[in-house]
Every structure is written in C-alpha cells, then in structure tokens.
Design a protein around this nucleic acid. Structure first.
Lengths: 103, 103
DNA sequence: CCAACCGGTAAGCGAATCCTTACCATTTCC
DNA sequence: GGAAATGGTAAGGATTCGCTTACCGGTTGG
C-alpha cells in the first residue's frame, strides 16, 4: 500500500532533484537529462520510471517528446501521510523556535 | 550531506514503526524486538543502527539494557528540510481542501 | 524515403539492502 | 563463580538499486 514507494523514491537525491525540476512546469526528458551531465540518459529514464510508479509524476506524450510533471495531488497526499506520521506540527514548530531562541 | 541518511532510514517500514514506538518514551531493545515477532533480534539491532547513524535515535545504556529514543530535534530538522523541499505548505492545504470539497 | 532525434527497454555489473545464523562481551542474580 | 539475560558484531545469502552500454521503435523534417 501507500507511501512506501513514494518514500523510497524521494530517498534518492537525483530523484528529488528531478521532482524539484518538474514541480512548477512540465519538462521533456531531454531537458531533464541535460541537467544531469554526469548521468546517462537511460539512468534518467529509470529514475523517471521509479517516480511514475510511485505516483509522483505524470507523463504527457506530444510528438516525439515526453513531458513529465509532478503530480501535486500525490505530493500532497504524501505530505499528509508524513504529517500524520510525525505528529503534532505546532509542537514541532514550538520546539524549533525554542532551539532557535537558545542561540 | 544532510537529509539523505534520514530519508533512506524512514523509507523502510520496520524503521518507521520503530521510530513511532520510541517517539513518546524510550524503550529497551528487548521490548522493541518482541513487538516484531517476524524479525530476528539482530535484524532489529541493525535497524536501530541505521536510525542512529541517521541521527534519528539516541541511546542510553543502563545496566544490561540499551534504551533507545527518538531525537526530536533531528526529526524537526528533517521536517524542516522536507517543508522547504515541498514548498508552500498553505498552498498544499488549500489544494487538499479543494479536492475534499469536490466530493 | 531516410537520416536525425527522442525516449523506452534489455542485459549485465558492482554495490548496497535486509535478513539470517552463529558467536561474543557485558551485566545481573543465585 | 556460573547460568541467564541483554545486545552488539561477523559472515553469508538473496534481492534490490543505480548505473552502464547496446539496441529498438516511433516521430519528424530534409
């Protein structure tokens, strides 16, 4: 069930970076790949697959381009799961503020 | 650098369960292990190690017992990283509310 | 039509992950 | 002192991960 695939997906730095890139606007694979000079293109394709399987990305085909984009609804769902998992958010903010004030 | 170890650590369901168990109060390893009937004790020990290496747990020795406990400050730090990563939280809540209202 | 472009898939490889059994050190209690 | 309890570590195995190169199908434009 739910958040496992997504959590595993975002545990990988490259995939977090991809997710960040397609948050505000969709991008074709070529564009994503060129921003990873150290990575082969299949590697990027495979990361995209993992993110899609986790439900965090959607894909749109147009001609010979594949545009990927973050699925905001799924991201929100993951955030909701994590919020529930971590527990009281206000308490956390309060602690953070106290630690900040202590310096 | 920072959140990678922690994110990898919480990507594992057993480790999330452990983290949940020692959030409010510390627990000795035996107690943690008995709550995982399907897991050997070394497996639990190894999960505890991963969580410690990620900074998410602290350990206190007392006699022959090792009490583990969640490090709330590190958890808060991880939450802060994720909040920054995801972006505007209010926008997310708004979207969630809209989706909810749409049913 | 055909050469270039775009992107997914297959196969393989080294490393990491998660688990097991076996063993060890320390502490406690008789 | 010695048995029992606690918990870490070593070694090994099966699986998964992240990456590579090689290849293949679909689209486009000369």
């Amino acid at each position: 069930m739910g958040p496992d695939l997504a959590l595993r997906a975002i545990a990988e730095p490259h995939r977090r970076e991809i997710l960040r890139m397609v948050r505000t606007h969709e991008l074709p694979v070529v564009e994503i790949a060129t921003r990873f000079p150290t990575l082969s293109r299949p590697a990027v394709s495979q990361h995209l697959r993992v993110l899609c399987d986790a439900g965090l990305l959607s894909m749109r085909r147009s001609g010979r381009n594949c545009f990927y984009r973050a699925r905001e609804d799924r991201i929100d769902r993951l955030r909701a799961y994590l919020d529930l998992f971590w527990g009281d958010r206000l308490a956390a903010l309060k602690r953070a503020a106290e630690r900040e004030a202590r310096r």
